[in-house]
């Protein structure tokens, strides 16, 4: 479970204050908002990459507000993937495990598991320069998933992909969540993505506090998280 309680973040001249929302364990939470509304800042605060000036962030009931990013047990997939140009795909998938000093055999086994889950087998020896957009995002996802995080933070991971690849990635994300039970916080500005993937949908508006600033949505929700509809002119999805 991701629980953000009355959190304030200051990033340069930009500020978010009194933000509250929660995503139940195993759910896919979507955070929407206009460009510059602070979605990424909020996601980075959950990851521990932006300091929180007030409030509490809990992951699976554990207060992680003052923990460093590496101690939070999260997987982070930024917008551009941010792959490491000097490493192969296999090295990406094993990166977090090398940092945790896993034995080489265990790393090899886990890399095989993750590559099988994401269909990366044929790419293991390649470097980022030779990957397509969709492949790069799958590698970034695999790199984040390798060390069994309980929470996955996705920052517009599909925005640079063509329609067909985006659909493939949506299917991959659904499979991943079904197979791993990971809780997802997914930042996007795409309504289609939100409807396709979201269990609970939140809207961040003007970076403002609590009820006025962050209204919770009920797009394609399947879990009963409360709030107004973030897509008023659109008909509710029937699926």
């Amino acid at each position: 479970m991701i629980s953000v309680d009355n959190v304030s973040v200051q990033a340069g001249s930009f500020a978010l204050s009194g933000v509250t929302f929660s995503i139940p364990t195993g759910s896919h939470g979507i955070l929407m908002g206009r460009t510059g509304s602070g979605k990424t800042t909020l996601l980075e605060a959950v990851c521990g990459l932006k300091p929180v000036t007030r409030g509490t962030i809990r992951l699976d009931g554990r207060d992680v507000t003052s923990l460093k990013p590496g101690g939070r047990g999260i997987g982070y997939v930024p917008q551009d993937g941010a792959l490491f140009p000097s490493m192969t795909v296999a090295e990406h998938l094993g990166f977090a495990l090398v940092v945790r000093r896993w034995k080489a055999a265990a790393i090899r086994e886990r890399v095989q598991e993750v590559s099988a889950l994401l269909g990366l087998g044929p790419l293991l020896a390649r470097r980022p320069a030779g990957l397509s957009g969709g492949e790069a995002q799958r590698v970034a996802l695999g790199r984040a998933l390798a060390c069994h995080p309980s929470v996955l933070c996705l920052d517009e991971p599909l925005s640079a992909l063509d329609d067909e690849t985006r659909e493939e990635m949506c299917a991959v994300l659904e499979t991943v969540r079904r197979r791993t039970g990971v809780t997802v916080l997914h930042v996007t500005h795409s309504r289609a993505e939100a409807r396709r993937l979201g269990d609970c949908i939140f809207q961040l508006r003007d970076g403002v506090v609590g009820e006025a600033g962050l209204t919770t949505g009920a797009g394609a929700r399947r879990d009963g998280v409360i709030g107004g509809d973030p897509f008023p002119p659109q008909p509710r999805p029937t699926a």
Partner: peptide, 13 residues
């Protein structure tokens, strides 16, 4: 890009 370091930080570095 600083984002690569951010990813590394979240991975336990």
């Amino acid at each position: 890009p600083v984002r690569q370091e951010h990813v590394a930080l979240t991975l336990g570095c």
